[in-house]
């Protein structure tokens, strides 16, 4: 079995087995939030891990994915699925429109541009009080399919788990396609890739739009699951969180970013006992992991494992 299939099967097995270890609705809620964050990271990883482009603004797409469908349902009484489609279309269009000029930039300039874009979207959501309810957020209606209302942790656990497995499968297909190999070549050297006749700009745009769509979908699902959304979901700190999840778990490792999402979602729950020391500990953990495992948790541990096996 190819290693990518092994990873996918492992993920599916974890999703299937996990409910037996979850004692109550709170555990389910955390598992769902991990899954939704992981979905964002799987998409973002295409951009950061494979195409080698930094984005510090992906929460904007997450936020738009949450707000646009919620508003269409709330204000215009649209059908949930239609509103979701429209929301994703809006996210995709925005990503496509800004991708070309932004992706011409490199390194820190790109980081700043995506950061700026993200902050602007967050500020607009925050300021348009009459539309979005402003900083105090807005209630989101439950997702409806006909007369069926999707509610409760059990339902959303399976929706999230299924979507995540599907999302990982799609991402891996993309990575292993000829286009994906070109994508990886980008990370190595854009000039080299271009000289081989690869449409570098085109691929970067594609990776950007796809990663935005993953974020948008996860945003919509989060809002429908929690039935509430605030502008914080679109904010700068969320963007940083997503990038941290990707880098912490392991860039260019699809399972790695899922682990990264799990760690960073669990940390606030685990650190709450530290009270006033919480931020101190969180900062130290982030720094320590990145200093000692700069390639991310999963790739670093995998390398250790290989070395250990080779020795014994």
């Amino acid at each position: 079995m190819a290693s990518r299939h092994r990873g996918l099967v492992l993920l599916a097995a974890v999703v299937l087995a996990l409910p037996w270890f979850l004692a109550n609705k709170f555990h389910f809620q955390v598992a769902i939030l991990i899954g939704l964050n992981a979905l964002v990271c799987v998409g973002l990883n295409l951009l950061i891990g494979y195409a080698g482009q930094i984005s510090l603004g992906h929460a904007a797409f997450f936020g738009l994915g949450a707000y646009v469908p919620a508003l269409l349902v709330d204000k215009l009484r649209w059908d949930s699925s239609l509103a979701l489609a429209a929301g994703l279309a809006a996210v995709g269009l925005l990503a496509f429109a800004v991708a070309r000029p932004i992706l011409r930039l490199k390194g820190h300039y790109l980081a700043m541009a995506t950061l700026g874009l993200g902050i602007i979207v967050a500020i607009v959501i925050n300021r348009e009080l009459d539309l979005t309810g402003g900083p105090d957020g807005m209630s989101v209606r439950a997702y409806r399919i006909g007369d069926l209302r999707l509610r409760g942790e059990w339902t959303w656990y399976w929706i999230t788990g299924g979507t995540l497995v599907l999302g990982v499968w799609l991402a891996q297909n993309l990575i292993d396609s000829p286009a994906g190999r070109a994508l990886r070549a980008l990370h190595g050297s854009e000039v080299a890739a271009e000289s081989l006749g690869i449409d570098v700009a085109g691929f970067k745009v594609k990776a950007f739009v796809i990663s935005a769509l993953y974020a948008g979908l996860a945003g919509a699902m989060t809002a429908h699951f929690l039935q509430f959304v605030t502008p914080i979901e679109a904010g700068f700190l969320r963007s940083i969180e997503f990038v941290t999840m990707v880098v912490l778990g392991g860039m260019a490792s699809t399972l790695g970013v899922v682990v990264g999402a799990a760690i960073l979602t669990l940390l606030p729950q685990l650190l709450t006992g530290f009270h006033d020391y919480e931020h101190l500990v969180l900062g130290a953990i982030l720094m320590g992991m990145m200093i000692f495992l700069p390639k991310g948790l999963v790739p670093s541990l995998a390398a250790l494992w290989t070395r250990w096996r080779a020795q014994s």
Binding site: V243, T244, V247, H279, G283, A284, L286, M287, M290, P294
Partner: peptide, 22 residues
Amino acid sequence: ARNAAVVTLIIITIGASILLRG
């Protein structure tokens, strides 16, 4: 971590900012 990727270094300094704030 001097040989780490740009984005890794960004996260180290973000970690440092959280730590200093804490």
